[in-house]
Amino acid sequence: MAKTVEEKQYLVRFRCDTKSHLEIKDHNVCMTQCPDKDCTIFCPAEVYKWEGDRMFVGYEGCHECGSCRIGCGFDNIKWEYPKGGHGIVFRLA
């Protein structure tokens, strides 16, 4: 019944661009200044995963909500809209 975030994401249609619209400005900031890495917790699509020394950004599953841009305490995410027509495509609500 779509319990996990993976199951939920599976129900969403994405028209992925080949290029990421999200970019970590400086992975070092995540490593040295941000022990909590809140983006890995509050992102509703689990786009961000900490890999020990750098932040993995799974932009393909992004809902383009903007939370990470606003919620990153270090203003460390360069956030743009995907190219026109690309990214998430909601079919219902």
Binding site: M1, A2, K8, V12, H63, C65, R91, L92, A93
Partner: peptide, 10 residues
């Protein structure tokens, strides 16, 4: 009920 779509927004 069966989930058809999952959506996030501000």
């Amino acid at each position: 009920a069966e989930t058809e779509e999952y959506l996030a927004h501000l």
